[in-house]
Amino acid sequence: MIVTDLLMPPGMEPLIAAVLLGTSLTASFVTIAFGIGGGMLLLAVMASLVPPTALIPVHGLVQFGSNFGRTLLMFRYISWRHILTFTIGSLVGVAAGGAIAFNLPPAIVQIGVGLFVIWSVFVHPPRWLREIPILTGAVSSFLTMFFGATGPFVATLSKSLALDRHRHVATHGAFMTIQHLLKTFMFGFIGFAFGPWLGFTIAMIVAGAIGTLLGRLVLNRISDQRFRLALNVILVVLALRLIISGMAAI
């Protein structure tokens, strides 16, 4: 009971905790094995189970841990080109987003996340977003303060570097580690209380680390075309559920 109290946020049921831990493992597996998609999958599931006010901060901290582990595991593959300019842009975007992030009603957050997930599935980011690192950092970091998983945005930048698969996964992980770290600092600065969620967040990060190790074993060994189709279907279904729930709350 004492261990449970330390790990579980107030009011969270054990079944929900188990689903979130399993999703964290799966999301990290998906990200390292296929290069992208895990963060969006985790966000879509968390948005259905985590209070809207805690969704983006907690998701960001979990994603920082997951991406940091991925970056350490594949550190030798990182391409350091554009890291500095992306970081500068991210600082600007996080600061701008942090100024208004807590003013959004929970229902609007749910609808916004749902629409953002659908957008990420069907729409390709514009050319300027993938070719100007400081703008990619600024725009994606601004959006991540509201909608969480901007991995598809940032992936357009790492893809434009024409890297092989291992270097792409490693470099994208480095970009996302920077972005989620800055976001976590900003949410702490503007007053979000991470304390009640800290134990469970660490448990999700550990689950994600296991997923990263498992995903690393299958990287470049499996075809991802059918998987991406299945993942997109799941994401759209979850996104529609979020939009419907948000509209009902309004």
Score class of each variant (00 low, 15 high):
Leu7Ala: 01
Leu7Arg: 09
Met8Val: 11
Gly11Ala: 03
Pro14Gln: 04
Pro14His: 07
Pro14Lys: 07
Ala17Leu: 09
Ala18Ile: 03
Val19Asp: 03
Val19Cys: 07
Leu21His: 07
Leu21Ile: 14
Thr23Asn: 04
Leu25Asn: 04
Leu25Asp: 00
Thr26Trp: 11
Ala27Pro: 01
Phe29Leu: 14
Val30Tyr: 03
Gly38Lys: 03
Met40Arg: 08
Leu43Gln: 07
Met46Glu: 06
Val50Ile: 15
Pro51Leu: 03
Pro57Glu: 08
Gly60Phe: 01
Asn67Ala: 03
Asn67Phe: 08
Gly69Ile: 02
Gly69His: 05
Arg70Ala: 08
Leu72Trp: 14
Arg76Ile: 10
Tyr77Ala: 15
Trp80Cys: 00
Trp80Lys: 14
Arg81Asn: 11
Ile83Lys: 05
Ile88Ser: 07
Ser90Tyr: 03
Gly97Ser: 04
Gly97Pro: 10
Ala99Asn: 03
Ala101Thr: 12
Asn103Gln: 07
Val109Arg: 05
Ile111Thr: 00
Phe116His: 06
Val123Asn: 07
Glu131Lys: 13
Glu131His: 12
Pro133Asn: 02
Gly137Arg: 02
Val139Lys: 04
Gly148Gln: 02
Gly148Ala: 08
Thr150Gly: 10
Thr150Met: 14
Pro152Arg: 03
Ala155Gln: 03
Thr156Gly: 15
Leu157Gln: 07
Ser158Val: 01
Lys159Glu: 15
Ser160Pro: 07
Ala170Phe: 08
His172Cys: 01
His180Trp: 12
Leu181Phe: 15
Thr184Pro: 07
Phe189Ile: 14
Ile190Pro: 00
Phe192His: 04
Met204Tyr: 00
Met204Pro: 06
Met204Phe: 03
Ile210Tyr: 12
Gly211Glu: 02
Gly211Asp: 06
Leu213Arg: 14
Leu213Phe: 15
Val218Tyr: 06
Ser223Asp: 13
Gln225Trp: 10
Arg226His: 13
Arg228Met: 04
Leu242Pro: 03
Gly246Gln: 11
